[in-house]
Computed example of a mutant assay.
Amino acid sequence: MSTTQHFCARESLALGDPLAGSAAHAERNLLLSWPRPKWQRSLRQASDMCGEVSAKLEAIAEAGRRVNLIHRRDQPSARHCLYLMPENRRFEVTRDELSAFLAALERNEPLAHWEVSPPDGALLLCCTHGKKDKCCAKFGYAAYKALNTAVAESGLPFEVWESTHLGGCRLAASAVVFPALRKYGRIGNEDALLLLESEMADRPYLPCYRGDSRLSPVQQCAQVAALEWLASRSIHADVSVAQPSNEQASNQGWITIDWRCASDTGRLTVRCESRTIQRYDTCADLAAGSSSASQVWMATQVMVTGSGVLHS
């Protein structure tokens, strides 16, 4: 009998499943610290939550704010750290007061009683949700340790937390940076410090970048392609992604990107083509042999507007 373990993340990489275009994530978030050993398969439920807290978290999620559980060893189990994003607000709440806090949040009442100073720097969540997918336990926890160690050893201004499911188990190790809302995948130990240094410069780390979560998949694909095109020319720029000017352009994947740096500005047009791949989204799918046909986007051309194709 074979003892070889199979992981959806390795299958995804071997298939050529792209990172770009996979960064969907809700903009409004509630992050709640809770000891990882108590996490359930649901991204917002724990085995020792009282029914009232559990129900309020479900109601908050139903109202449109994504809820994730997060964990760090130094956080007391009976005292919870909570974050509201993109507001970048932080709160400290005892277990006894948690239901009252969540009720106030639901009713849009003042939360000043529990509020503490906001984070000094960016918040970085790394998915280690092993009860959801074994790739997140294997690859996610290794990436979390590498990121946390790099922050500690270099004194970098980040808070790194373990997190429940962030989406895209097949892309583990997965992470999201708040409040920038940039998503990453396939983070290896060798990427940790480089990713953090890029984020400190307010630039996405392109080797692991999935895209800006505020954009559609095709826009994310175009954004990443434009940033790579610029970086290959040693241009580190802010980019703005335009909506396709008409339905035909949208269907053909033509996306306009405006860029600006300290010394120059420009415009690129990126063509992204839709492709269908047969993939396993999770390790459970892989074990069951139930792959699914999925649409992905691939950038095939980057043009300087009015100057012809310079890269494809």
Score class of each variant (00 low, 15 high):
Ala231Gly: 10
Pro217Lys: 11
Leu194His: 09
Gln223His: 13
Ser234Lys: 15
Leu194Asn: 11
Ser234Cys: 11
Ser232Glu: 15
Tyr209Gly: 03
Thr256Met: 14
Glu199Trp: 11
Gln220Pro: 07
Glu228Ser: 10
Trp229Val: 03
Gly185Thr: 04
Pro217Ala: 12
Ile187Pro: 09
Arg233Met: 07
Gly253Met: 03
Asn251Ala: 14
Gln223Arg: 12
Pro244Ala: 00
Ala222Asn: 00
Ala225Thr: 01
Ala201Asp: 11
Gly188Tyr: 04
Asn251Pro: 02
Gly188Ala: 13
Ala226Glu: 02
Arg233Ser: 14
Leu206Ile: 06
Asp258Tyr: 13
Tyr184Ile: 08
Ala222Leu: 13
Gln252Leu: 15
Gly185His: 02
Ser245Ile: 06
Ser216Trp: 02
Tyr205Ala: 13
Leu227Ala: 02
Ile187Thr: 05
Lys183Tyr: 09
Ser245Asn: 05
Ala242Tyr: 04
Ser245Arg: 11
Ala242Met: 06
Gly185Glu: 09
Ala242Lys: 05
Lys183Met: 05
Gln223Phe: 08
Ser216Gln: 13
Leu215Glu: 08
Ile187Glu: 01
Gln252Cys: 14
Gln248Asn: 13
Leu194Val: 03
Ser245Leu: 10
Arg203Val: 15
Glu199Lys: 03
Gln252Lys: 15
Ser213Leu: 04
Ile187Tyr: 03
Gln243Gly: 02
Ala222Val: 01
Leu227Arg: 12
Pro204Cys: 07
Arg233Ala: 13
Leu195Cys: 05
Gly253Ala: 10
Gly185Ile: 04
Gly185Phe: 08
Asn246Met: 05
Leu194Tyr: 04
Ile257Tyr: 10
Cys208Gly: 05
Glu199Met: 11
His236Lys: 11
Ala231Ser: 15
Trp229Ser: 15
Asn189Leu: 07
Ala237Cys: 04
Val218His: 07
Leu195Ile: 06
Val241Glu: 00
Tyr209Glu: 08
Val239Phe: 06
Gly253Asn: 08
Pro244Tyr: 02
Gln219His: 14
Leu227Thr: 03
Pro207Glu: 08
Leu230Tyr: 03
Asn251Gly: 08
Asp202Asn: 15
Gly253Phe: 14
Gly211Pro: 03
Ala192Phe: 02
Leu206Met: 10
Ser234Leu: 10
Ile235His: 07
Leu206His: 00
Pro207Ser: 04
Ser198Glu: 10
Asp258Arg: 13
Ala201Lys: 15
Tyr184Gln: 02
Val218Leu: 04
Val224Trp: 06
Met200Glu: 06
Arg186Ser: 06
Ala226Lys: 10
Arg214Asp: 15
Ala226Cys: 11
Tyr184Leu: 07
Tyr209Asn: 12
Asp258Ile: 05
Cys208Asp: 04
Asp202Glu: 14
Pro244Ile: 00
Ala192Pro: 00
Met200Lys: 11
Glu228Cys: 13
Pro207Trp: 04
Ile255Met: 01
Val218Met: 11
Asp238Cys: 08
Glu228Tyr: 06
Ala237Met: 01
Pro217Arg: 03
Ala201His: 07
Asp212Thr: 02
Leu227Lys: 07
Arg186Met: 09
Asp191Met: 05
Ile257Met: 08
Asp238Lys: 13
Ala237Tyr: 00
Ala225Asp: 00
Gln243Phe: 09
Ser234Thr: 12
Asp258Leu: 12
Tyr205Leu: 12
Ala222Gln: 00
Arg210Ser: 13
Glu199Leu: 15
Leu194Glu: 11
Ile235Leu: 10
Tyr184Lys: 05
Pro204Val: 10
Gln248Phe: 10
Asp191Leu: 03
Tyr184Trp: 12
Ala231Tyr: 11
